[in-house]
């Protein structure tokens, strides 16, 4: 029951963020500070989630470190989302066999 409540909150908040500006706003954001802030926030959020999660959440931080390095190298080589994501998985799995 509590899980359903969590999911409901997630769904309602996420829907409102998406649909309300899409439906209501017809003007562009004027403040340069806010324009930059909105431009940077997605990447900042992803980075804030990725590094600590990879290093501290899993059972073996070394495997995660390998996954992170593989993902960064593949991303630097301009590989697609799928290739980078699979590369991270393969690196973590292979590292897990040896560590």
């Amino acid at each position: 029951m509590k899980t359903a409540m969590y999911i409901l909150i997630m769904a309602v908040v996420t829907y409102l963020i998406r649909a309300l500006p899409f439906t209501l706003c017809r003007n562009k954001v004027k403040s340069p500070f806010l324009q930059y802030f909105f431009a940077y926030i997605p990447y900042a959020v992803l980075a804030a989630m990725t590094l600590p999660h990879m290093l501290f959440e899993g059972k073996n931080p070394l495997c995660a470190a390998f996954a992170l390095v593989a993902a960064i190298l593949l991303a630097l080589c301009k590989r697609s989302l799928i290739t980078v994501a699979s590369g991270a998985c393969v690196a973590a799995f292979v590292a897990g066999l040896f560590l």
Partner: peptide, 21 residues
């Protein structure tokens, strides 16, 4: 568990693929 742990890296790999470029 070894396989699911590795597959769990997929989503974070995708995040890396979004912010690195």
């Amino acid at each position: 568990a070894s396989v699911t742990a590795a597959l769990g890296m997929a989503i974070y790999g995708m995040f890396v693929a979004i912010f690195i470029p």
